[in-house]
Design a binder for these strands. Structure first.
Length: 571
DNA sequence: GCCGTTTTCGGCCCGACTGTTTTCAGTCG
């Protein structure tokens, strides 16, 4: 488990207290920037600290680096302790209430002695908030509602779920013939792994009609804003959806602006300023003249940049690369020629091998690997050697049948045991076309043990791919403790490919890991790990993640024709 | 507090919406 979330929380709290105390706004912003950076960091901030490289994180300079170091080594930060003593309130808890900001927190603390959710709720229920200057009955009601939202611990939503919710809203809105254009923006468009809220942009002949339809859609549980260009609702599922109406001649500018992320946009604006231009959500202007903004590409072009795919817009070097014509040509879904990790009902899959093959054939794949679990994973009905040998014969027969045009590859997802040995004998492994090894047990091993265990497994001359290398389940289980640099090094030595597991809940490796792996010259396999036929569709999420990791077609072995793919993994 | 194609000082994005204001402050993205 990385320290990133903890460190981000500490920095956020410091930022909030500084704002509370009325400190220099840009100092506050500096902390907020660092929080964003560290939350989105591809690797463990503790590793960067070990390497004494914290200031390589955008927005982290000497001062904040010291804060992080102090926290990581002692578990405490002096300045934060002082702030907490001076202002004894649960500032993070209060700030988590939608509609409540620092000014309100300060007001209720100073006037009513409110220090946490409970005391705020009590004050609201006793009708004390509405008596305060600047607040009224409506605000008080809003706060009462907001406290419930904060309590429900409103978390993020998987990309796949957010996309499906957004698509449902799109379908409902598209019934309005007033709508000319509709796109998803924000983190959905950047294809982040998880989504905070859903941003939808439309261009329409009758914005008012669109807005009133939007705020009355089924599933809308509350409306927090309803204006002419912006409306905001919360669905019964808890997720917030923002809809914005943009003018036709500024649609590209709005799309660029609302795609973000904020750090990317800030840097873009600075570039505009240096050219004597002004960039905002309505367009790119020279004086009063709009010189770009109808479409996004015009904005980037006018600023002297190549078009930056949304997945890269996180201020992680893409702007500089775009200035120098060095953006990667990112992989696309159509580049994928096969899936190298899938299950059947012989282990814990839900479909027969024939059903899986039919579904894979529909994808137009050139090859497809069947890789069921092995014996240690009893809960998944893992295969032992004799069943695996039968499976090998079965696939030979299926290949010979000619029913499927694609090549069916004989594989297995072999368990890595406690010492890094594998749970299938070498003489059986040697008969498989493709061996993926994965950790499914003892995930709480300490970093050293886990790293040695995985590295040892990679030394087997029958291993081709390391499956879901960090074992995380988004929003559910952290990655296990492992030194990925060492694993990558071992993979490099032993010609082992890293899996990018495309399951929406895994997306393992993450974008930062992928960049690090390919920088070391490793190859990646994007695999669905499908347990039933419809999960073969998860390939798209793997490709999104690959794009976020700056991967090109050449980085990914399952874009290769069969022969080249097989020779690439050959030991 | 951070940062550099106005580079070691002096900037740092800004507009929509709401509720409470009778001209604007707070929050959000």
């Amino acid at each position: 488990m990385t320290k990133n979330a903890e460190v981000a929380r500490v920095l956020k709290e410091i930022g909030l207290f500084l704002e509370f105390e009325g400190k220099e706004p840009f100092k506050v912003k500096a902390y907020q920037r660092a929080v964003r950076s560290i939350s989105a960091l591809g690797e463990d901030v503790a590793n960067l600290a070990d390497r004494d490289d914290l200031t390589s994180i955008p927005g982290v300079g000497k001062g904040i680096a010291e804060v992080i170091k102090s926290y990581l080594t002692t578990g405490n930060v002096g300045v934060l302790d002082e702030l907490r003593t001076r202002v004894p309130i649960k500032i993070m808890e209060l700030d988590a209430i939608p509609g409540v900001g620092i000014k309100t927190i300060k007001l209720v603390y100073e006037k009513l002695g409110v220090t946490d959710l409970e005391s705020l709720e009590k004050a609201a229920n006793e009708d004390k908030l509405s008596k305060l200057p600047g607040l009224g009955l409506k605000t008080q009601d809003q706060i009462i509602e907001g406290i419930q939202v904060a309590r429900s611990g409103l978390s993020r939503t998987l990309l796949a779920d957010a996309l499906s919710i957004a698509t449902d809203i799109e379908t409902q809105l598209r019934k309005l013939h007033e709508i000319n254009q509709l796109v998803f923006a924000g983190s959905i468009r950047r294809r982040r792994e998880t989504i905070g809220d859903i941003d939808i942009l439309v261009e329409a002949t009758d914005p008012k009609q669109v807005m009133s339809t939007f705020v009355t859609l089924r599933d809308v549980s509350s409306v927090s804003a309803h204006g002419e260009t912006k409306s905001s609702v919360r669905l019964s599922s808890g997720i917030q959806v923002d809809l914005r109406v943009l003018p036709k001649d500024g649609f590209g500018a709005g799309l660029q602006y609302f795609t973000g992320n904020v750090d990317h946009n800030v840097k873009l604006r600075a570039i505009a300023q240096k050219k004597g231009l002004r960039l905002n959500e309505y367009g790119l202007f020279r004086g009063e003249d709009k010189i770009a903004g109808t479409d996004e590409s015009g904005i980037y072009k006018t600023l002297g940049l190549d078009f930056i795919p949304p997945e890269l817009r996180e201020d992680k070097g893409e702007i500089e690369a775009a200035q120098n014509g060095q953006l990667p040509h990112l992989i696309e879904l159509k580049d994928i020629r096969g899936d190298l990790h899938s299950h059947t009902d012989q282990s814990d899959g839900k479909n027969t091998i024939e059903e899986m093959l039919d579904a894979a054939q529909m994808k137009g794949y050139e090859y497809y690997c069947v890789s069921d679990h092995t014996q240690s994973l009893t809960i998944a009905n893992g295969m032992d050697e004799s069943r695996l040998l039968q499976r090998i014969e079965e696939i030979d027969t299926l290949n010979a049948s000619g029913r499927w045009k694609m090549k069916i590859l004989k594989g297995a997802e072999v368990d890595i045991l406690s010492e890094g040995s594998l749970d299938i004998k070498d003489e059986v492994l040697s008969q498989l076309d493709l061996v993926t090894v994965s950790i499914h047990s003892r995930m709480k091993d300490n970093k050293k043990t886990m790293t040695e265990r995985v590295c040892h497994a990679l030394e087997s001359k029958y291993v081709h791919i390391l499956g879901h290398p960090t074992g995380r389940l988004l929003l559910k289980r952290s990655e296990f403790e492992i030194d990925l640099d060492a694993v990558f090094e071992s993979a490099k030595q032993n010609n082992v490919v890293m899996e990018l597991n495309a399951h929406p809940q895994r997306l393992d490796l993450n974008a930062g890991n992928l960049r690090a792996a390919t920088r070391m010259g490793l190859k990646i396999a994007i695999n669905t790990d499908a347990h039933w036929t419809t999960e073969l569709d998860h390939m798209q999420f793997g490709v999104y993640q690959a794009r976020r990791g700056w991967l090109t077609k050449n980085d990914v072995i399952n874009t290769y024709p069969l022969k080249k793919m097989m020779s690439t993994i050959k030991k």
